[in-house]
C-alpha cells in the first residue's frame, strides 16, 4: 500500500486514466486476482459509496469545488460570450454594455453587436490563422506519434525493473520550465546556432539553413514540448496489453511485424487517441511556441488572440476569436472527455 511506485512525485500533467499504471504492482488484497470484484459487494461507484451515506457533510464537500468551478470556470465563458457581442470603445472597461436602460421609457434594451464575428469571417487573416493552427497542431501531433510510439513501446517491452526509471526520464522534463525548454531551441536552431554549425562542420551545407523564425521551428517546438503527453497514455495502453495474443500469433507462424500490425497497433488505438488529443487540443491554441520560434509570418490563432487583446486592446474581438476557437475545439474536447471517462471506468478494475 505504501508503494508510490511512480517515482516522480506527481507523475504527469495528465489525466487520470492516462497516468501510466504503476510498473511494479503493489500487492494489495484488492488487486489480487479476482479480489477486486469479489471482495466488494459493489458499493463503490454505485451511488451508495460510503461517503454518500452522510448527507449533510456530503453537501458541504460538494458545494465548495462545485461552486468554485462554476464561478471561476463556467461563468467566465458566459462573460466571454457576452463581451464578444459588445462593441469596443475607448473606456474602462473597453467595451459597451449589452443592456441599456432607456430612462424615459423605463425598459431595458439589449443590443447584440455581431460585427466582431462578421470580422472573423470577412478577414482572411483570421481564417488563415485558424486553418494554420489546426494544420500545425495536426502535423505536430503526427510527429509526436511517430517519435512517441517507439519510445512508449520500448518502455512497455522493457524489463519491469527498467520501466519505472525510464518513465521517470520521460516525465522529468515536465518539472523543468516549459518556457526555458522552448527557449533552448533558439540556441539550437538560429542561423549561428548549434545545428547549423554542426551541419556546416560536417560539410553537408555551405550556408546556414534558415530554421528559426519559420513554421518548421514551430513544428519542432510543439513536438518537443508535447512529446511526453503522447508517450504516457500510449505507454499506459501498451503496458496493459495481453502478451498471450502475441505468443499465440507467433505459435501460429505469424511474423513479428505482421503481429504488430494486426494485433498491437489496433489494440493501442485508445492510447494513440488519448495522446493525440492531449497534444492536438492545447497545441491548436498555443501562443508561446509560435511567438518565440515562429517568426512574424507563422500565424496561429493564439497569437492573433493575444495581439487583439494586448496590442489592439480590442477585447470584444479577442473574445469572439476565443469563442470561435472553442467551437473548433468542442468536438476534440468532448472526445477527450469521453476517452478519459472510459479509461477511468477501466481503472476501476
Amino acid at each position: 500500500m505504501a508503494a508510490i511506485s511512480n517515482p516522480v512525485p506527481g507523475g504527469s500533467r495528465n489525466s487520470a486514466g492516462l497516468v501510466p499504471p504503476e510498473p511494479v504492482e503493489p500487492v494489495t488484497s484488492g488487486q489480487a486476482p479476482g479480489g477486486a470484484g469479489a471482495a466488494e459487494p459493489g458499493p463503490r461507484g454505485s451511488g451508495l459509496g460510503l461517503l454518500s451515506r452522510f448527507r449533510p457533510g456530503r453537501g458541504v464537500v460538494m458545494a465548495i469545488p462545485y461552486g468554485w468551478l462554476l464561478l471561476f470556470f463556467l461563468i467566465p465563458f458566459l462573460i466571454v460570450l457576452k463581451i464578444s457581442l459588445s462593441e469596443a470603445q475607448l473606456a474602462i472597461p473597453p467595451f459597451t454594455p449589452l443592456t441599456e436602460t432607456l430612462a424615459e421609457e423605463g425598459r431595458t434594451v439589449i443590443t447584440l453587436f455581431w460585427d466582431n464575428y462578421r470580422r472573423l469571417t470577412g478577414d482572411d487573416l483570421y481564417i488563415i490563422a485558424y486553418l494554420n493552427s489546426l494544420w500545425i497542431a495536426f502535423v505536430s501531433t503526427i510527429f509526436c506519434l511517430l517519435i512517441g510510439y517507439p519510445v512508449a513501446y520500448a518502455i512497455a517491452k522493457a524489463d519491469p525493473r527498467w520501466r519505472a526509471p525510464l518513465l521517470m526520464l520521460i516525465i522529468l522534463p515536465f518539472w523543468t520550465s516549459f518556457l526555458i525548454r522552448v527557449y533552448a531551441w533558439i540556441g539550437i536552431l538560429s542561423d549561428t546556432g548549434l545545428l547549423n554549425n554542426f551541419l556546416m562542420m560536417l560539410g553537408i551545407i555551405d550556408s546556414p539553413l534558415r530554421i528559426l523564425y519559420t513554421p518548421t521551428a514551430t513544428y519542432i517546438g510543439i513536438t518537443y514540448s508535447y512529446l511526453p503527453f503522447m508517450i504516457l497514455p500510449l505507454y499506459a495502453t501498451l503496458e496493459k496489453m495481453d502478451n498471450t495474443l502475441l505468443e499465440a500469433a507467433a505459435d501460429l507462424g505469424c511474423p513479428p511485424w505482421k503481429a504488430f500490425l494486426t494485433i498491437t497497433l489496433p489494440l493501442s488505438i485508445p492510447g494513440m487517441l488519448a495522446g493525440s488529443l492531449l497534444v492536438f487540443i492545447p497545441a491548436t491554441g498555443e501562443f508561446v511556441i509560435p511567438e518565440l520560434l515562429g517568426g512574424p509570418d507563422t500565424l496561429m490563432i493564439g497569437r492573433v488572440l493575444w495581439s487583439e487583446f494586448f496590442n489592439n486592446r480590442d477585447w470584444p474581438v479577442a473574445s469572439a476569436v476565443a469563442i470561435a476557437l472553442l467551437l473548433f475545439l468542442v468536438v476534440p474536447i468532448m472526445l477527450f472527455q469521453n476517452v478519459q471517462g472510459r479509461q477511468q471506468e477501466a481503472g476501476r478494475g
Binding site: 500533467r13 495528465n14 489525466s15 469545488p65 468551478l69 462554476l70 464561478l71 471561476f72 470556470f73 463556467l74 461563468i75 467566465p76 465563458f77 462573460i79 466571454v80 463581451i83 488529443l277 492531449l278 487540443i281 492545447p282 491548436t284 491554441g285 498555443e286 501562443f287 493564439g302 488572440l305 493575444w306 487583446f309 477585447w315 479577442a318 473574445s319 476565443a322 476557437l325 472553442l326 475545439l329 474536447i333 477527450f336 472527455q337 478519459q340
Partner: peptide, 20 residues
C-alpha cells in the same frame, strides 16, 4: 468542468478569467 482545463488552450482560460 474539472477535466476541461487539462486541455483547454491557455489563451482562452486567461482571457475568460480576466473578463470575469
Amino acid at each position: 468542468m474539472v477535466s476541461a482545463p487539462l486541455v483547454m488552450p491557455e489563451v482562452i482560460l486567461g482571457l475568460s478569467l480576466l473578463l470575469l
